[in-house]
Design a protein around this nucleic acid. Structure first.
Ligand SMILES: [Mn+2]
Ligand SMILES: [Mn+2]
Ligand SMILES: [Zn+2]
Ligand SMILES: [Zn+2]
Lengths: 142, 142
DNA sequence: GATGTTTATGCAACATTGTTGCAATTTTAT
DNA sequence: ATAAAATTGCAACAATGTTGCATAAACATC
């Protein structure tokens, strides 16, 4: 791993008041390396089975709590996580972008530049959050 | 069960070229009765444990294949299903509506009148399907 | 309504995914 | 270097989903 990236990761953990551990550094490294969302099984594979499953679950939950990563909805039982590129904090997330799932390569990406549209709901409904997931064929697969 | 509803369900199964079985009738009955999306565990509870888990999985998959139900994306591992109110067929679904998840009562509903907005993606991306899930507080819970 | 054929179901066995308690280890603060 | 606090790995468990196969139910034909 590059020293620069390591420094970046350490800063990220420190600013979230998390202690610097091998698992956390490795998982953040995998997020930065990948160009899309990752799911639990990916970490077990990509990390070379060096970490316990439970630790990975707990680490992802911690990152969620701290606003370091966010989840992306799916229609199957998998849970997909992506790193927050905007500076989300523990109590305010502002990842208001569309997600894209490619039917060819299976990758899921954050489209940072594509904003979530305004949805006008029927009377009586109060919206707190809107998730948009587009599926289709990505740039690379066409 | 009302005779009228039973007849409706039988028609629905026939028009999808599915044989009429107890499990299928019961599951459709539960869909019609509920005013929101259901997940696998709901069928085991609501049906009174009379059906095998495997049969429920297979029935839901069959209904999906035939366009009788559709899935709704979630950020957890649960898979939620709702009945298609538009007349979707085996090869063409046209459920282009927004879904709403209430943070209070936990119900997920199809907002049939609320259309999916047009999303303009970055160049190179080809959209086939757009899913919108809004979370917040529903009519009844306010 | 009885017949054979097709289809669906239930069961067992297994795989995958996620959770909790607790002791051992690592990190951090002093 | 040491003590306190936090994280990790392990075991045990719970929930969810899949497959093969024998039995049972539904369907089409007579
Ligand atoms: Mn994202
Ligand atoms: Mn719907
Ligand atoms: Zn692709
Ligand atoms: Zn509600």
């Amino acid at each position: 791993m590059l020293a620069k990236q390591k420094e970046l990761i350490v800063q990220l953990l420190r600013s979230s008041k998390l202690s610097i551990t091998d698992t956390r550094v490795k998982i953040l490294e995998l997020f930065l390396k990948s160009n899309g969302a990752l799911e639990h099984a990916d970490f077990e594979k990509l990390s070379g089975k060096s970490f316990d499953r439970v630790t990975i679950y707990r680490t992802l939950q911690t990152f969620l709590d701290k606003g370091i990563v966010h989840k992306i909805p799916t229609t199957d039982t998998s849970v997909r996580y992506a790193i927050c590129k905007s500076d989300c904090g523990e109590h305010d997330h502002h990842d208001h972008h569309v997600h894209f799932r490619c039917e060819e390569c299976g990758s899921t990406r954050c489209l940072e530049e594509t904003d979530i549209p305004v949805i006008s709901l029927p009377k009586g409904y109060d919206a707190h959050n809107v998730e948009v997931v587009v599926s289709g064929v990505c740039k690379e697969c066409k």
